[in-house]
Amino acid sequence: MKLTNVLGGAVLTAIFATCAFADGHVVRMGTEGAYPPYNFLNDAGEVDGFEREVGDELCARAELDCEWVTNEWDSIIPNLVSGNYDTIIAGMSITAERDEVIDFTQDYFPPDPSAYVALAGMDASVTAKNVAAQTATIQASYVANSDGTVVEFATPDETIAAVRSGEADAVLADKAFLEPIVAESGGELIFVGEEVAIGGGVGIGVRESDGELKAKLDAAIASMKEDGTLNALIAKWFEGRTGY
């Protein structure tokens, strides 16, 4: 008990001491860290991927001091509005529904189709059966309104595993996420059915009350689009995409 008090006291003191000395504004970048090539944790356990590079470049251009944090997808919006971090940069498509709760910058990744993936040998009819999708995504709500039955999972990886194990007949996700998985599955997984166009482009989510940060990021994205650096990053991380 006593030791806990001492330890607790020491840590609390450390927290407040640091608070007193630290000054200057840091922008905390919230991401999921489980959605390659957009964002993932590399072997070093650090956030990596397309959005890591875009985010770092945006911060450099807007002269912001940025720090990366990961948060589970399902609670990524609530934690933004309650102020645990300042942006969502996690492959989040701009939708009217989300726009009611948070604000988006202009898109830094153009609208990308979603696609169905199933085990080899299946045909388009699986899209009307059990379709896996990540919780709280545009794909999950699309499947719910289609002929298929939606089976929701917390992480993107679990939706793929569900198809492999037969728990779901197909998965609906962003095509850019599925492409490397299908390519490396050695023929086990294939694209089936028609691609569907849902969602606007991918933008950075910010709090509605944070207009200043939104304006800075918007300007930085515009400048990256202008000089071609954004397209170069898109081409680097997404095979066969040319960007804007």
């Binding site: 927290i15 640091t18 840091v26 905390r28 001091d65 944090v69 509005v81 309650s82 709090r207 944070d210």
Partner: peptide, 27 residues
């Protein structure tokens, strides 16, 4: 309270947004 947002001034943030990540995690 501004709509869904909970907004306090930057110096009232706990931990401060400029604090190291380990402090956020400890908190």
């Amino acid at each position: 309270r501004q709509g869904n947002d909970f907004v306090v001034c930057a110096t009232a943030k706990l931990p401060l947004s400029s604090a190291d990540q380990w402090i956020h995690e400890t908190y």
